[in-house]
Design a protein around this nucleic acid. Sequence first.
DNA 1: CGCGATTCATTCGTGTGTGAAAGACTATGC
DNA 2: GCATAGTCTTTCACACACGAATGAATCGCG
Lengths: 147, 147
Amino acid sequence: MARVRAVDRRLFLLIEIVARRLSREADARLRAEANVTASQSAVLFLLLRRGERRLGSIGEVLALGAPAVTGLINRMETAGLVIKRKDSSDKRGALVDLTEAGRRAAERADQVLRGFNAELDEKLGETDAAIVYDALTRLATDSDTDA
Amino acid sequence: MARVRAVDRRLFLLIEIVARRLSREADARLRAEANVTASQSAVLFLLLRRGERRLGSIGEVLALGAPAVTGLINRMETAGLVIKRKDSSDKRGALVDLTEAGRRAAERADQVLRGFNAELDEKLGETDAAIVYDALTRLATDSDTDA
DNA sequence: CGCGATTCATTCGTGTGTGAAAGACTATGC
DNA sequence: GCATAGTCTTTCACACACGAATGAATCGCG
């Protein structure tokens, strides 16, 4: 049950619903197998592949506002996943980097999400997955650069 | 700036980012032009087209857990958008329906989101929009019935 | 140099979501 | 008929997001 055709042919509402469902599932798996949340895992991946970054840079990549990043990083620091230090070249800013525990968590989380995304790709089929990925990327970037 | 290619070729993370961006934009427009939030608008549409419903039914359609629905409806009741009454045929449940103000808000919100979704469709193009809509619908329903 | 504008992060108040547990009611099986 | 199991909503504690306002540091222009 819980057919979704539901609300309307309105893309925005559908994306919200899908995002909630996927988030719930991914979050549950990540908590169980890597002991991190879905939001935290996004930060972990970013730091793992691109190294130490400022808070603002994290928010830019993940489309998060400044207060959201502050809170997220604080919780992650409490959990021992990252360390935050003052940027000595610009004392307004702070730099965030992985701890060793954070690095290990990032690698576990990577495995979990790799599996999850493989399942999604399979459900969509290769062609559709590519189109969806492209289309969403367009939606994410457009509203940005049109200013 | 704020290129999104960023995080990874991980569909799940991309959907999260897009959902956040779209939500932020839609929410701002809905607040400004219809004086409701994005979450509230989803409930308004559901009630407008399908009439009085139980809390659980709302949660099922919108993929929300029971506590989320309780909170959402309570805030909407405080705002005068809906009324809640005991279901006399099953006193565990409660029924929610639009007030007159709620109906008017739903219609204004409908205009706003109609425009917003038209913009999205345009950005995607007709073909891709249809594929994306289909693919997301599949993602939303699958994880449901596989139990 | 110095003062105003800008930028980066934080705090505040609020809305929205979660899972777990409790409470109220209904349904079922003996 | 009555205990037990199931269903529906609420409450609780928490995570996560937002906009607006604040504080701290830097930039940039005169």
